[in-house]
Amino acid sequence: MTATLRTPAAPKTDSKEAVSDVVLVSRAKRGDLDAYDELVRRYQERIYSAMYHMTSNHEDASDLTQESFIKAYRALKSFKGDSSFFTWLYRIAINKAINFLKQRKQAHEMSLDDIDLNAEHDPDILTLISEKTPRRQAALSELQVRLNEAMQKLSEPHRLVVTLHDIQGLPHEEIGRIMKCNVATVRTRLFYARQQLQAYLSDYIK
């Protein structure tokens, strides 16, 4: 079985998709569920990914993704197009995640997704785990748990910038638009978040 590597990409900003989003949103506003379904399929992986890295829980991430899309559909009439649909949708999802995390109990169980097979062959990852133990799969799973535990120790704003920038690859400017803060704030938060993570994961970092 081969799994394809799907790196979470930054939002495509080519005009074709931008126009397409506008058209789909316009149709969805008139009650066209097929158009909205297309938007869901276009963005659900990125939204799910953000929710998953914020919660470290598959079920919570699925629920939050679903609720975010439903909430966005209800609020679609209020979407004026000042930002891209992607940014607007992300903002809704992120707010939902932060509210959820505030209500969640401190002690929660992680429910982690599997790491796809390509990870074992990624040269960068290979160097990180091969020196520790020959049992790569076990080492990889252990590293995954440690990573998620470290992420959950961060505050929500810090976890969010790491998720959006270091994992999802969004540029600082886009993160600033999503979080409604300036780029300098994004950079500062990112710096402190990385410092904390580095301390938590010192065993794995030379």
Binding site: A3, L5, R6, T7, P8, Y48, Y52, H53, H58, S62, L112, D113, D114, I115, D116, N118, A119, D122, D124, I125, L128, L140, L143, Q144, L147, N148, M151, V162, D166, I167, R194, L197, Q198, L201, Y204, I205, K206
Partner: peptide, 18 residues
């Protein structure tokens, strides 16, 4: 400064739902 950390975080990109 954080290149090692970023390599570690890259593992999280490989976490995929069923």
């Amino acid at each position: 400064q954080f290149s090692e950390l970023r390599r570690l975080l890259a593992i999280k990109r490989h976490e995929r739902p069923p």
